[in-house]
Simulated scan of single mutants.
Amino acid sequence: MHGPVSPAWLLVALCAATGAYCLLRMRSGVEEQRRAAGGEALMGFGMAAMAVPAAVFAPPRWVWPLYAAVFGLAALRALWSARRSAHHLHHLLGSTAMVYMAVLMAAAPAPHHHTGGSGPAWLTGALLLYFTGYVLLTGARLVPVTVRGGPGAVRWGDRPELSRVCRLSMGIGMLAMLLTM
């Protein structure tokens, strides 16, 4: 991504930490949470890798089609899983946004391939609008969360407020990445 290096590293750290927490959530006793956490871990680590400043590492051109393929498969999986849970529609949009950004990176001229190209303004705007709404809604849902049975009743990896913080972090990261497109 382009822009100042310090914010890019903060985005890398945020997304990598979110991906790591989601990996830990995959150990949950709740099957649906394990499935969602796997997709969110992939998204967190993918966003972290994509956000590494170009001044530090400019990946070869073949990386972007690979990103598009990986997140295209993740989008298909999310589409299939959306039959069971509407939450997977968010995973579908997130994976689609990653495919979109990877395609723009692949299509950018070689000297500027890490700064991305400009895609259709309506699509970038629609994704920005969705993720802005998602961040605001998820942030608002953080406030009233209560855990029944006291703090010892729920394992820390299964706490709903931590899952929401994870999703909020990735939504903010996605907004930051889309703004650089």
Results as ranks from 00 to 15, higher is better:
L162R: 03
M105I: 01
R141M: 15
S163C: 00
V135H: 05
V99Y: 03
G117S: 14
H113M: 14
D158V: 01
A140E: 11
T115I: 09
R164N: 01
M98F: 04
S169V: 04
G119Y: 05
A106Q: 08
T132M: 10
R167G: 01
L104W: 03
L137M: 07
A126Q: 14
G139H: 13
M170E: 10
L128I: 11
A97H: 04
R148F: 07
A107W: 06
P151M: 05
R159L: 02
G133N: 05
P111F: 08
R155N: 00
Y100W: 12
T124P: 10
G139N: 13
H113G: 07
L162N: 00
H113D: 12
R159A: 04
P111T: 07
G149L: 03
A126I: 13
L162D: 00
P111A: 09
C166G: 01
P160A: 01
C166Y: 00
M105P: 00
A97Y: 05
Y130M: 06
L142N: 13
M170Y: 03
I172W: 12
F131G: 09
A110H: 10
V143E: 11
R159H: 07
A121N: 05
R164L: 11
L136I: 05
L168Q: 07
L129T: 15
V154P: 00
H114N: 10
T124W: 09
A102P: 02
W122T: 11
Y130T: 09
L137G: 03
V147I: 15
S118L: 14
R155G: 03
A126D: 14
Y134T: 02
G133P: 07
P151A: 08
R148T: 09
S118I: 09
G133S: 07
G119R: 07
L142P: 14
H113C: 10
Y130D: 08
Y130L: 13
T138S: 13
M105E: 04
T115F: 13
A110N: 05
S163Q: 03
L129E: 12
L137F: 09
G152C: 00
A102G: 03
S169L: 10
G149M: 02
L168T: 05
I172Q: 07
G150M: 01
T138W: 06
G117E: 10
A97C: 08
P144F: 12
L129M: 15
A153L: 02
L168S: 06
G139Q: 12
L128C: 14
A140C: 12
L123H: 08
L123W: 10
Y100F: 10
V165F: 03
V103F: 02
P120C: 07
S169C: 13
R148D: 11
Y130H: 14
A140L: 15
G149N: 06
S118W: 12
A108Y: 04
T138D: 09
W122D: 11
V135N: 05
G116M: 08
R155Q: 01
R167M: 01
A108Q: 05
L136R: 02
D158H: 00
A110K: 11
A140G: 14
A108N: 06
W122P: 09
G117P: 06
H114S: 11
A102I: 03
